[in-house]
Amino acid sequence: MPDVVLQIEDLQKSFGGLRAVDHVSFDVEGGQLLGLIGPNGAGKTTIFNMISGIYRTDAGRILFDQTDITNHHPTQIAKLGVARTFQVPRTFNHMTVEENLMVPVVRLRLTDAEASNRVAATLNAIGLYDMRHRNASELSGGERQLLQFARAMMTQPKLMILDEPFAGASPAIIDVIIERTHDMAKSGVACLVISHDVVSLPKVCEHVIVLTEGSVLTQGRIEDVREDARVIEAYLGT
């Protein structure tokens, strides 16, 4: 049985009077591809922000690799092996594509040769090698999604959290992201994916957790969840 990489226990978060995340619990195993879906405002990105340390939790625990990382600093969490992408790509637009990938090198303690080998391998894997000298500001929205995905790959994480990785991406880029996500899962990396893309998400994840109004509505195989009347109601209303 694979090891549990991420354990979310009874997580809670409020903004003023709004309960954004309400008693949410789930586990992610090594090599598992798990989707987190739900209508806008369901609390998906808030959960991501708590896992990566950007938001503090109000209550509950987050365990990563048996270590309690609840309310740890984002830098510490990243150093433990959690990588993430952002819904709106946060590429470093004053830098070249290659430099974007070099950013984490300072803390990975790689030699120059190791760093440039890893950068070249990562850029080749996602098909951006020929664009390595271009400024990130010159890339399309989809290419920026790819770039921040590659930047996360550079850190060789144990857990990858992808926030809307297909938003604004062309079908070709989506295919690359899907393939590389599967590759990472095969090598034991746990992947947690938020997506509204009903076509692409099933190609990545077999299992999903459905959130609504901050709570877990249901979870299971994506085909089963799709037919669930409560899920249809949550998305479409009554």
Binding site: S52, G53, I54, H73, P74, T75, A78, K79, A83, R84, F86, R90, T91, F92, N93, H94, M95, E99, N100, M102, V103, P104, V105, V106, R107, L108, Q148, R151, A152, T155
Partner: peptide, 20 residues
Amino acid sequence: RAIRATSEHPDAAMAMGIDI
């Protein structure tokens, strides 16, 4: 490079493990 990254997106730099 870490300084330049931090100036543009501190949260993305932290997500890379940069100690801002």
